[in-house]
Simulated scan of single mutants.
Amino acid sequence: MSPTTIPDAPSAATPPAAPPLDAAQLAEAFALFSRASEELSTAYNALQGQVAQLTERLTVLMGALPAGVVVVDRGGVVVQVNRAAESLLGAGLAGQRWPAIARVLEATGTPGEVTLEHAEGQRRLSVSETALESGEERILLLHDVTETHRMRLAAERNERLAAMGEMVAGLAHQLRTPLAAALLYTGNLRQPELGPVERAKVADRAIERLRYLERLIRDMLLFARGDSLGRQHFGVCDLVAELTHTLEPLARARQIEFDSTCDCGDLTLYGDRKALGGALTNLLENAIQATEAGGRVTCEAHREQLAAGDGVCFVVRDSGRGIPAELQERLFEPFFTTRAEGTGLGLAIARGVARGHGGDIALLSTPGQGSTFTLNLPLWRGEAPVGTAADSGVSAS
């Protein structure tokens, strides 16, 4: 008996063949595709029109902006500028590297502001920077604040002159008293009966009064002039060492322990070294005057994170009698003093110098437990203040 042949069963994996499209269905599908293509083309053309319109508006806006606009890519190359930026920095900026352009901008004592030598004279610019969300480009805004800066300086000077005017009566008394004493002592020198020893004592007292007058007039001039003049780079620890060399003998003469520390290494500041040294000297002299024999005065300097960025803090601490709360608010007022021999301008000048360098002075004191004055200053890197465009990621290292 021969084996029975079983026909092959259809494969379950093979899908059934789709019925062929007839001509009408093909025509309908082609018509749908054509309509979709036309709609996409219309939408694309509309988007192109909107982009062109937005581009035109942006171009007009950049041209009308009074502030300079510089667009810099990730590599630090300028890709776009407006007319205001070209009027400040020159034409043909596109394609150049921003770090090379930014070399003409010099840092000032105010964070975020730089100076630029211009054909119309030195200009003062406020520089701000914003990165795009993509991270591919950064936009730098350059605001010409020359006139604003001049008005600010004039207003500050007027405030100082107004403060001096309010204190004219008290100042006249301060000048008249030592002057009268000096005249009295020098008048006594004419008495023939004075011996050499008495004559020398009277002369010393007259010279002492005249020196006090000289110091008072010097402080008045410093207060009226306001901000300091020349600026330079100098080491923080070098300044602390100089202060120690100057003040340690004075403290030793009053039998007061004087210590100074600086953990800033080779860190540098940019400012008027003489003015800052004078401000810190005022703080240290006041601390020594407020401390009794056997007490202690310290001067410390360290790097610290401030609200405006990296900074340096100078801390002057004493173990003296402290300052009552009701007097602390008035200590920085011009001509206010708690010392008979004080001019009342030292702390006012010190705060003016600190603020002129972008910093400030703070006081913490408890009666009977001493006082702590903290002078903080922003830290400069190179020729540009921390946080400005010249020190941003678009700059060359």
Rank of each mutant, 00 (worst) to 15 (best):
Q174M: 14
E248Q: 09
A200R: 11
A17E: 14
G75E: 00
G358I: 05
F335L: 07
V353F: 14
A287S: 02
H143W: 10
R225M: 08
T146S: 07
T291H: 11
A169Q: 09
E341T: 05
A290N: 15
A18K: 08
L364G: 03
T130W: 01
D73K: 14
T298Q: 06
P178Q: 04
S365T: 10
R97A: 05
P367W: 15
D391M: 02
M167A: 11
T338C: 15
L184P: 10
L363K: 15
A287V: 10
R225L: 09
R252I: 12
N188F: 07
L89F: 14
P249C: 12
E214S: 01
D204N: 12
S365I: 07
G278P: 05
R330I: 06
A390G: 10
R74V: 00
S128Y: 01
L221H: 09
T374I: 01
R211V: 02
E147C: 09
I139Y: 05
A251T: 15
Q305H: 11
F258Q: 03
L61T: 07
H302I: 05
E39P: 03
Q191M: 13
L283I: 04
G187Q: 10
D73W: 05
R209N: 04
Y44A: 08
F314V: 12
M220N: 02
D391Y: 00
